[in-house]
Amino acid sequence: QTKVAEHPGEIWCDSLKLGNLQLVSKLKNPSDSCSVDVSTVWWEVTGCKESCIITACEFTVSLWKSLDNWQWRKVYTWHFTEIPVLQIIPLWDACNLVCVALGHLEIREIRLLFCSDDECLKQSLVKSGNIKAVLGLRHKRLVCSNGTLHDHQVDLMTFSGSGRSKEKQTLMSPEETILAFAEVQGMQDALLGTTLMSNIVIWNLKTGQLLKKMQIGNSYQASICHKAYSDMGLLFVVLSHPHGKEIESMGSPIFQLIVINPKTALSADVRPYSLPQGHTGRFLDGEVKDTLAAAVLTSGTIAVWDLFLGHCTALLLPNSDGNWSFVKWSGTDSCLLAGQKNGNVFVYSY
């Protein structure tokens, strides 16, 4: 038995109803340019710190304040003129600060967005160059890797409360291209990364040391790490394979959970997260929060997995306005933010 909800965005849930998506609100960005990303951020609006939605179009980034009854009002918009916005980089526990990545196909600039004391919108250049991977961390920190093989650099930046200054620390480079970073739940000074050559690397964020470089096999080439969990001396890592080949009969897993013993660098597969029968597609974009993973697929559908249960718990099919193109979890509650290129952002409670 499958439950199919009404428009907008057909929702499929499994018969056990272990997960459910319910549409609670819709934001319409009237900008003519293409929407590229969404996230949530803590912001002090009219003297009150609250969780706001932040949306990005090609040349604008807008902050939305919540009103009553799940309605949203746009309060600030930052404008960009030369390089388009690629993604929002939230700094998870920061207030009144958010970063954005700008570029064409690859990230060329990272900018910090904030407001001055007199409520003027400000932006400052944090990093420029050939940026390969970036992640916002807790405690107003941002990690990014840039440069090519010979001048490869991994920087950890810490921003002041107001965003006016930053401290920079260099992490030891694994001397190969880093594709993605992930925080390690349960080990706050650890940072994990995946590399182009199928390695997983671990840093100590306090000392900047590169603790381990571990080969995870050719079947994981160019994997993206989304989240890691440290438990009982082992590291559990959620990966996706944006370049994975789809096997027609069963499809390739969208996410994969592996386990690594960091002491021995030995690893094993734990569980694949695949699409239900009859659905196909490859990973385009996605996010893992706590035990929930969401992905936008090449088919234009959004799929949600409960990592503990091990199976897909909800599917959000494209609606009459078109395919889904980006998806994020809200920072404060179990809401799924689903966006389309035309500026529509739908908020679903899970």
């Binding site: 100590n204 000392t207 603790l211 381990k212 690594i260 013993n261 960091p262 021995t264 094993a268």
Partner: peptide
């Protein structure tokens, strides 16, 4: 997988790797 697949497990792996890694 069992402990024999992954080798000996240490609950203090982070501290141990930090002391073993180059500064």
């Amino acid at each position: 997988c069992s402990e024999s697949d992954l080798g000996p497990i240490s609950l203090n792996w982070f501290q141990e790797l930090t002391s073993e890694a180059p500064p």
